[in-house]
Amino acid sequence: MTLKVDLTKVFKLNHGFRLQWEKAQDAHVLLYPEGMIKLSPSAAEILTLCEGSNSGEDVVAALEKKFPEAQGIANDIKEFIQEALSNGWLK
């Protein structure tokens, strides 16, 4: 996959999308009109940080700091953000 995401940009959830913890799912979920996506813990970490003030680089830095043992997460994050953008979750 070619990654075109510009990590200097600031991302936030698209309108109509809501991120919340669901006890019944034991997971974070992304809610949107008539639908729900159950998020993996790492997806939830990334989306939680995409709240309209952090740039993509900030998200990477924050998560590298939080999970120092994780190697090469920058690329994973970039990939996820690209996917989230093309799914319309983020803008």
């Binding site: 669901e22 019944a24 799912q25 979920v29 809610l31 008539e34 639908g35 729900m36």
Partner: peptide
């Protein structure tokens, strides 16, 4: 309580 999350 039963896990409903979408309400129409």
């Amino acid at each position: 309580e039963l896990g409903a999350v979408q309400l129409g």
